[in-house]
């Protein structure tokens, strides 16, 4: 599925300073019954966001109007648990294009990149700085430059660089995906399959 190209993103950010945010929290299993990729954002963080009677929980950050933006900042080990890509879809559908944390679970990280969400891994110290900056001023903006591989707190100018492999970076900047790449090398895969015996 096509996604928006990612080059430079400047946005306010939503803070979620909780560790080990698992994919069951991002989207609970009972909302995985669809056969199309539609409206998953409605159930993003469903059980943290809504009471049992579907009224919003006032103390959850997504229900607090002072926080908004395309960047979600999470505690360490973000995205652990299930491989459900629905978690990444829910974040994207809600409007997030980037998740910042000091550590990501593997499968979530791969799923996010595959659908056009950039996971930005920063140091614990920088993550702390971001949380403090947002706490001091919810309107503070952050700039993520994928080409330069930098994340900058615009209020202070504090900047850190982040890792991403060259192939995935190229994909995100150009809006390409792996299926395009694999389709283009099918003859090579077919040749491999004929010599590969299992």
């Amino acid at each position: 599925m096509a996604y928006d190209k990612f080059t430079v993103l400047t946005s306010t950010a939503v803070p979620l300073p909780i560790e080990n945010v698992d994919t069951d929290q991002i989207i609970p299993a009972r909302f995985l019954k669809a056969t199309e990729r539609k409206n998953f954002g409605d159930n993003l963080f469903r059980d943290w966001r809504y009471n049992n009677d579907d009224t919003p929980k006032k103390d959850f950050v997504l229900n607090n109007p002072i926080y908004s933006g395309k960047i979600l900042v999470g505690g360490t080990n973000f995205g652990s648990g299930s491989s459900r890509e629905h978690a990444a879809w829910a974040l994207y559908d809600y409007g997030f294009r980037c998740v910042v944390s000091s550590f990501f679970a593997d499968i979530f990280k791969g799923n996010a990149i595959n659908i056009g969400i950039l996971p930005v891994q920063v140091s614990d110290a920088f993550l702390d700085q971001i949380f403090k900056a947002i706490e001091a001023d919810p309107a503070t903006s952050i700039t993520i430059d994928l080409e330069a591989q930098t994340i900058k707190l615009n209020a202070t100018g504090a900047t850190e660089s982040f890792d991403i492999n060259g192939y995935k970076k190229h994909n995100l900047i150009n809006g390409f995906d792996d299926i395009d790449y694999l389709q283009a090398m099918k003859a090579e895969i077919k040749a491999f399959a004929t010599t590969h015996s299992i």
Binding site: S83, R84, G110, Y167, D178, I179, L182, K186
Partner: peptide, 22 residues
Amino acid sequence: FGIGTSEVEMVLSSQCIMQPKP
């Protein structure tokens, strides 16, 4: 190992995924 739905589509269509070696 477990994969996401984009990768399920990759395996269906090309029997491969793109995976950095852990």
